[in-house]
């Protein structure tokens, strides 16, 4: 059992995967010699070779297309897109091709590919380097979308993603790459895709969140009076997502707050709120409350904390939902 950061758990999981399966090939910008911009692949090229941890040119469309070709041909490809904004040039390959290949060929051709992408704000970077586009891809049938926020979950979900027969986007919340450590088992394990985690049980209100916002929600909940009991759910899988766990919780508590970094409109919170309304209508004590980023471009630096759904705003959402 090793104590690891989120990024450390990702590096060691990739290391073990490369060692265990010769079909795995990783591609990305500066992931080899330089070990990746966030050092997520540090040392992997030296250990597993240039043929398997491949430094690419800066060409996201080429990286994604090549990774799709590799996967179709029987390899398991793990491309890294350096920042979520750089998915733009690769969007055509990912959504118009990888996502649709199985359907288009009636199952004859599949794309077992795991696209690793650092995501989200909180590191003082500007737009294209701080965005939260998860709902765009959740809205693209054919790809699965994950966003773990703890080292333990990262390892289990990354293993599941690599094993999955379909394309998976594995978003890594960069803000919490190194902010805390926890024990991660050395041996191989999986966490099922599509299963949320109940972080803490409660009776009065359900908070649903994911990514780096999880830690803001924890902070908000910590500052509540002791007699308020909140059930906190880390969604982890953005698509498919675990509506059963959410519905069970909201049916019990009667109140739901959803928090995410992405802009409010058509964010994943909108889908969850609609489903809660469909499945828990008769149990609801208050309207579902969303605390999200605003419908604006991710601002630069000095306004970043104004944009992000930090603990005080989540606390306010909880308070208003409880008071309704």
């Amino acid at each position: 059992m090793a104590v690891q950061t989120l990024v450390g758990a990702i590096t060691s999981t990739l290391d073990q995967a490369l060692a265990a399966d010769k079909d795995i090939i990783m591609l990305g910008e500066d992931i080899g010699l330089n070990g990746g911009v966030f050092r997520a692949t540090d040392g992997l090229q030296a250990k597993h070779g240039k043929d398997r941890v491949v430094d690419t040119p800066l060409d996201e469309s080429g990286i994604m297309g090549t990774a799709i070709g590799l996967a179709i041909a029987g390899m398991k490809s793990i491309p890294e897109i350096q920042f979520e904004g750089f998915l733009g040039p690769a969007y055509d390959q990912l959504v118009n091709h990888a996502a649709r290949m199985r359907t288009r060929t009636r199952g004859a051709v599949t794309v077992p590919m795991t696209v690793r992408v650092p995501v989200g704000g909180g590191i003082h970077a500007p737009e294209l380097h701080s965005d939260s586009p998860e709902s765009i891809y959740a809205h693209s049938p054919g790809v699965k979308v994950l966003m773990p926020c703890t080292p333990y979950d990262a390892k289990g979900l990354l293993n599941s993603a690599i094993k999955d027969p379909d394309p998976v986007i594995f978003f890594e919340p960069k803000r919490v790459y190194r902010t805390f450590k926890e024990e991660v088992p050395d041996e191989y394990y999986e966490i099922p895709i599509g299963k949320a985690k109940v972080v803490s049980e409660g009776e009065d209100l359900t908070v649903v969140t994911w990514g780096a916002t999880m830690f803001q929600a924890l902070e908000a909940i910590d500052s509540l009076p002791e007699d308020v009991s909140v059930e906190l759910i880390d969604l982890r899988s953005i698509y498919p997502f675990d509506m059963d766990t959410i519905a069970e919780s909201v049916s019990k508590t009667g109140r739901c707050v959803i928090a995410h970094e992405a802009p409010l409109t058509c964010g994943m919170g909108a889908e969850i709120a609609a489903r809660v309304m469909e499945e828990c209508f008769l149990n609801l004590e208050a309207p579902v409350q969303r605390v999200a980023g605003f419908d604006t471009i991710m601002p630069y630096y000095k306004l970043e904390n104004e944009y992000l759904p930090e603990a005080p705003r989540i606390l306010q959402g909880i308070t208003e939902c409880l008071a309704y």
Partner: peptide, 25 residues
């Protein structure tokens, strides 16, 4: 903080992002 909404569109749209009351700034 109000600059978050300036210059996103030529004419700021009411009812964009009707999220919880703004608490930071």
């Amino acid at each position: 903080a109000s600059e978050l909404y300036t210059d996103v569109y030529a004419n700021p749209q009411k009812n964009l992002s009707p999220t919880a009351t703004y608490t930071h700034g």
